[in-house]
Design a protein around this nucleic acid. Structure first.
Ligand SMILES: [Zn+2]
Ligand SMILES: [Zn+2]
Ligand SMILES: [Zn+2]
Ligand SMILES: [Zn+2]
Lengths: 132, 132
DNA sequence: CAATTGATGTAATAACATAACATCTGCAAT
DNA sequence: ATTGCAGATGTTATGTTATTACATCAATTG
């Protein structure tokens, strides 16, 4: 997926996520963009929808939040599942990609005749700094 | 984790989930239990909290729903991560456990000095019947 | 220009989850 | 038996996340 030119709202939302230290909820993004004219959640959700489609933002299902992709420019996501490690204390997110994990999971679903569409792997815990 | 005797509300919620064909949202469970005296979401969420703790119910983060464990009595969950395949058409859920996936993911987080607490693996797609 | 498409604005509502506080019930310590 | 405690429950209100519905606007194109 090649990323097209972002629209005004998409750029605003993306910039907020890029500058953030960790994942943000849609409503937190909305609050940060009130000064730029944002008034309603849909302005955020619509931008996020596109950014997710382009692969430049990820949704973290387990914490209902969104984060800018940590591999900018890279299209590693197009050939594999991404796993996230999410620090429950500071919010830091690490992205990880492992072909072997893909292979095992996809091997299993194929055995079950299951047609996978989207896979989520999220590990919540404590990062090195927060665990100390 | 050995499962203690369930309380009245816990039993009611668990029974609803066991009899269901697929995952249910907390509010769907609430509706199904109105005849049994349930009036408020908290009655459901409090029961679910315990059932999750006992490991007899799983939460599917990607669809905000809950499902009875498919491995009753088994304590396979105590020594490994469980992956779920969720059919987006009929709601059927399959549970899967793979040591190699665990090993790769846990090896990676250890390398990052990350302390994992809870891991989610959810594969959404279409089951054999629905994909046909 | 008219028609189409994609983006945006706004209000209202739906869906999911928790806070705060009162009450009740079973059980153990005195 | 009475008291005190812990866990479970009931109830109301509120907080948080996400979508529906409808109107408007801008760029493209035939
Ligand atoms: Zn990424
Ligand atoms: Zn941290
Ligand atoms: Zn299970
Ligand atoms: Zn199906």
């Amino acid at each position: 997926m090649t990323t097209p030119q972002l629209t005004k709202n998409q750029s605003l939302v993306f910039d907020v996520l890029e500058k953030a230290e960790g994942p943000l909820s849609a409503y937190t993004i909305l609050d940060k963009l009130r000064d730029h004219g944002f008034r309603a959640p849909l302005q955020v959700y619509r931008a996020l929808e596109k950014l997710l489609e382009y692969g430049v933002v990820h949704r973290l299902e387990s914490i209902n939040s969104f984060v800018a992709c940590a591999h900018p420019g890279d299209d590693c996501h197009s050939h594999g599942i991404v796993a996230f490690a999410i620090c429950e204390s500071c919010g830091q997110v690490m992205e990880f990609h492992d072909h072997e994990v893909d292979h095992r999971l996809m091997g299993w679903v194929r055995g079950q005749k299951f047609k996978p569409a989207k896979t989520t792997i999220e590990i919540r815990g404590l990062c090195e700094a927060c665990a100390a």
